[in-house]
Amino acid sequence: MDFKDIIKPENLVYRRSSLLTDKPFSYCPGCGHGTIHRLIMEVVEELGIQEITVGIAPVGCSVLAYEFMNMDMQQAAHGRAPALATALKRLMPDKYIFTYQGDGDLAAIGTAETIHACNRGENIIIFFVNNGIYGMTGGQMAPTTLPGMPASTCPFGRDVNIMGNPLKITELVAQLPGVHFATRQSVHTPRNVRRAKKAIQMAFEVQKNKKGTSFVEFVSNCNSGWKLSPVAANEWMEQHMFPFYPLGDIKVDGNLVTK
């Protein structure tokens, strides 16, 4: 049988979510932002909640997320997405509201909004893409940059004595009573993608049941900022990011996971 005979509509088992627009992602080749966009839209599509979901794009590489996600969206000032989400959810409690934010957006300039939205237990999802660097502005040090890791504003590597330590904000917010679900995922292998998708589904479930904030971190690559090829960046991420930012659930059903 020639493979061309297999390619028929009735044999289709996977295609990109119909909730993605036709516009090609503006992300660099191999960037995890794309995979994460895809997964979120897949879950929204499968749950059939496009009409009652509003997303919030950050300032960062994913500032144009609204160009790719075919749904109502707002674009927030740098770091303020959780404040927008707070208002949207309180005014429309029956809609699903999520933010999508990078590490600079969420864990540096927007730390206060992040922590207070979580602490109020806003019934929203915060999707947090941690690539350890400021992608959009050209690879500067982020609050999540690893010790010793070079970036354009720490060209000799992050010296924690001068620049302070990287911030594990997911562990931090998991301590707050308002947070019902906190998890750390990645999307660089098929297995991780499947797990990440389950975490996204769980987060929407938590919101449906009005249980509080879901905080879903994705440790992701920034091959441009890290100056590695996409595949090498994923390997580097496994070797260096995961030991510092271990994958897995941090808080489930309102209870911290004990390892």
Partner: peptide, 11 residues
């Protein structure tokens, strides 16, 4: 499912 740009369809 790992393709960041979602350009692969599978049959």
């Amino acid at each position: 499912i790992v393709c960041p740009d979602g350009v692969i369809s599978v049959y």
